[in-house]
Every structure is written in C-alpha cells, then in structure tokens.
Design a protein around this nucleic acid. Structure first.
Lengths: 157, 157
DNA sequence: TATAAATACTTTATATATAAGATATATGTG
DNA sequence: CACATATATCTTATATATAAAGTATTTATA
C-alpha cells in the first residue's frame, strides 16, 4: 500500500509540484548543455560558467572571491582547485593584486577568450533549441514570473 | 572596454536570458533548501531526494538502478557510495533481489521512514514560503509553461 | 601605534558527479 | 547447451561541492 500524503495544504502541494517541475527543467537543461560542452569542447559547464563571468568582467579580470560569488552553474566550492586546473590548461592566468597583497586576480588568457567565444555561440544555439516549444510571448511571461520568484527568494533569509 | 555581444539573434538572446534566470531560481532554491536540511537534520538534499523516491515507491523499495534514474536533486553518480553511506547511517537496507541475482533492492528502514516524514513536512513549508510572492494563478501558469518546456527538452536528443 | 576584527585565499576532509572499465549474471539466438 | 550481447552493480580515477580551519593581510578602532 502506498503511503498517505504527508502534505495536506493545497497551496503547499501546488508549491512542491511546481518546485519539482522547475528543478526537473533546470537539471534536464543543465545535463543537456553540460554533455554537449564536454563532447564538443572537452570542458565542463562549470568551466564555461567561469569563462563567461570573466569574459563579461572589465578587462576580463576578476578577483578570486568575485569570480567565486558570481558562479551560477557551479558553486564556489574549491574555487582554488578550479582555477588551478584552468590555469594548467592555459585558459586563465592568476597574478597578485598590487593594491591588496591578500588578493589574487584571475584574467582570461588569449586562449581562454578565443575558446569562450566559440563555445558561447554554439551554447546560444543549444539554449534556443531547448526553448523551441514556447512562443515569444510565453518566453517573456515565463521570464517575468521567474524574475519575481528569484527576487522573492533572494530577499528571504 | 567591454566585449561586444557575441549573440545577435533576439530570440536567442531572450532564450539565454531566460535560461540564466531559470538556473538562478533553481540554484537559489536548491541552496536554500539544502542549507536548511543540513542545518535542521544533518542530511544533504541528495539524501532527502533518495529518501523521497523510496518513500513513494511500492513497499518503499527500489532496485538500485531504478533509484539512480529517479534521482532529481542529484544525479546517479556514485549511487553505490550514496547507498553505502545511507545504509551505514541506518536509513536504508540493501538486500539481494531473489528474482535476479545481478540486482540489489534498497528499502527504506523504519528509521529512514520516520526521518523522511518529519523532513518532508518541514520541507513543504520551506518550499511554500519560497513561492510566497506569486499568486495561485501565477503558480499554475508557471507550472504549465514549465511542463511544456520539460516535455520539449525531454523529447530532444 | 596596538590590537581586535574582517577579508582573501588556501588547505584539508568528506560528499557527490561523471566517465571508463571490470565482474557477475541474465537473456536471446543458434 | 554454447555463445554473443545486454544488464546490474561495483571499482577506479578525476572533477566538483560543502564545510571548517589556517595564514597572511587589511581595516577599524581605541
């Protein structure tokens, strides 16, 4: 016999169902994009995320902490190791910050920049394909709801 | 000087913005729920997910492979280790499948069941709180769009 | 200036994710 | 039955996530 429902309140049930749906969408898309990046370029979504944050930063440089807090696809866990490996692959360069001797600055290398530009264009196609089932206006409505959701989530805690 | 936009097509730009928003929402909520589960119960979201999948399964049992494919919060990476640690903590029991000697069946223990029931109720409150900013009808619209999105994503590849 | 507190990064340990391959068993076909 | 192939799980290696503690430096304040 299956277990009885633990949650009685309809609003709460609806919220949980929505959350699971949101999570499923995000995971599916993440897996899909991650697999393609790995297959086509041999790099993880985490690295693509890091390259992306650096690319849009002024002078393509960020202090380690700033990079860590901006990472989306990944979390900032073991940022040191991530940068170590990316540096070993020639994607980024780490140098001391002359203004603050506690701090290190990470810069996108020429190699990293060229690689990211190629990856980003194809990544854009893949993302667009993923949303193909939705109309332009549905995309906008969806985004508007998600923005409100995120703002509420962020103002919590 | 900041880099020029790599993506020109408006639909594609919109898609990428939406995807980043979706990812941000999912990550924020995941981090929030994971931190609370860890703080209140000392278990990860991955474990909660596994307990949840087992709880809703017939007889609260699943073959290892079936459990692995149903995991949402996590992926099936190192499912063996996950089950090992949960078994060591007394949450689940692993026993051979009499119908197939290649197969092992994972069952929620009494301890695991009791724990999950407590966790699930509180988890429901937390999830509901996260969506507090949205109206009932907005919840429904959002879910409808996400279901269509997921179906499109899943039918791809 | 002296010192407490905060900050930036690293280190360590453990948990989890991903991929490749090993082993045992099951299944389908001849 | 013999064999090829598929399946279920485990093992190993590496990448990434999370948490706690350590070191060097900066900042705030007495």
């Amino acid at each position: 016999m299956a277990a009885a429902k633990l949650i009685k309140d309809p609003r709460e049930q609806q919220s949980v169902r929505l959350w699971l749906e949101l999570l499923r969408c995000a995971k599916t898309q993440e897996t899909r994009l991650g697999a393609r990046l790995r297959k086509h370029y041999g790099h993880s979504l985490t690295r693509f995320d890091a390259l992306s944050q650096l690319y849009r930063a002024p002078d393509m440089t960020l202090p380690v902490t700033a990079l860590a807090t901006r990472l989306l696809a990944s979390s900032s866990g073991n940022i040191t190791g991530l940068i170590d490996r990316m540096e070993a692959d020639g994607l980024v360069v780490r140098s001391p910050n002359p203004d603050d001797r506690r701090s290190f600055i990470v810069r996108l290398s020429k190699t990293g920049t060229t690689l990211f530009e190629k990856m980003a264009i194809e990544h854009g196609h893949w993302v667009r394909d993923g949303f193909e089932g939705l109309s332009d206006s549905e995309l906008k409505n969806l985004q508007a709801s998600l923005i409100r959701l995120r703002k509420h989530l962020e103002q919590e805690d």
